[in-house]
């Protein structure tokens, strides 16, 4: 399935959408850019930190609510579109439900496990408790209400057509987001035969029953890194930070890299992208699933 078809079918206006769940690596930028191209509105963005992707969706007017621990540009600092939306209501106001990294993880685990809430000691003494209605102080501990995404999008190293995905490297809050979500869209560097995936079932990210779409999207995480495939494009983050400082600069950036681009293959064309490919490969030793 193409990313355009996956977004068209499974990410309608008003979707509660989890993305960027590995934190800095493996951010599904290709999916985010397609969501912008299709003009989605009223999204709730769910994630831990977001390295620029949420900022772009907010600047493009796609989001009405953010449920996250941190929104900005990790190597460059503030998220300028996030600031304009929160401070001046541009392009329109957004509701912010602040979390910490731990609390958004626990909120997703609560949804994943069907629990009414998760008790924790984190956020005790933080004003986040007073400004996020999903958090409650009861008898000296914090109760975190479940956060259930309608859709979670993950970019992974490889998947088979049935949505059995192999992902490696740090996973952040990907497992709880995927288990909690009603539907999962997998975007992958390599689309492989089921035999490849099933040779290592421990590495399968999620039950295939959650996955509604598999999109073969090489470079789908650019400018974020992907272990074994892509280095992080620091210059792209720097360029985005500089140009998104003003609304006009952001519009120009959006036209150049999102609206004026047909799809991810066109976006990834060119030598400067190819130079980001990982050159030094480090293969793990295979494990033995021998059975008799």
């Amino acid at each position: 399935m193409s990313m355009a078809e996956a977004v068209d079918r499974f990410v309608p206006d008003g979707t509660q959408l989890a993305m960027g769940t590995c934190l800095e690596p493996a951010i599904p930028f290709a999916a985010g850019h397609e969501i912008i191209r299709q003009g989605r509105r009223g999204l709730t963005l769910i994630g831990p930190i977001s390295d620029s992707l949420f900022d772009q969706l907010i600047g493009a007017g796609c989001a009405e609510r953010v449920c996250a621990a941190w929104v900005g540009n990790v190597s460059e600092g503030l998220g300028h579109c996030y600031r304009r939306a929160a401070e001046r209501g541009e392009p329109h106001p957004i509701e912010i439900r602040d979390h910490s990294n731990f609390s958004i993880s626990l909120a997703l685990w609560a949804a994943a496990w069907g629990a009414p809430y998760m008790p924790t000691r984190t956020l005790l003494g933080s004003d986040i408790l007073t400004t996020n209605p999903d958090l409650e102080l009861v008898d000296g501990s914090v109760r975190i209400r479940p956060v259930q995404p309608d859709v979670a999008v993950f970019h992974v190293q490889r998947s088979d057509p049935a949505g059995r995905a192999h992902a490696w490297g740090p996973l952040g809050i990907t497992e709880e987001a995927g288990l909690a979500a009603r539907r999962v869209i997998i975007s992958c560097e390599e689309l492989v035969e089921p035999e490849v995936i099933l040779s290592d079932p421990n590495r399968i990210l999620l039950p295939e029953t959650k996955v509604v779409a598999v999109v073969h999207e090489p470079g789908g995480a650019h400018p974020s890194p992907l272990q074994g495939f892509w280095r992080r494009d620091h210059a792209a983050y720097r360029d985005y930070a500089a140009r998104s400082r003003t609304a006009e600069g952001f519009s120009d950036w959006l036209e150049e890299w999102v609206l004026g681009v047909s799809d991810r293959a066109a976006y990834m064309a060119g030598a400067s992208r190819a130079e980001l490919a990982v050159q030094r490969h480090l293969l793990s030793v295979p494990v033995d699933y021998g059975d008799e």
């Binding site: 996030y82 602040d98 979390h99 000691r121 984190t122 956020l123 933080s126």
Partner: peptide
Amino acid sequence: TKLPGSGGGADIAIL
């Protein structure tokens, strides 16, 4: 000014 938020900061500070 809207700053980026806690990230893991609050968790580290508390725990």
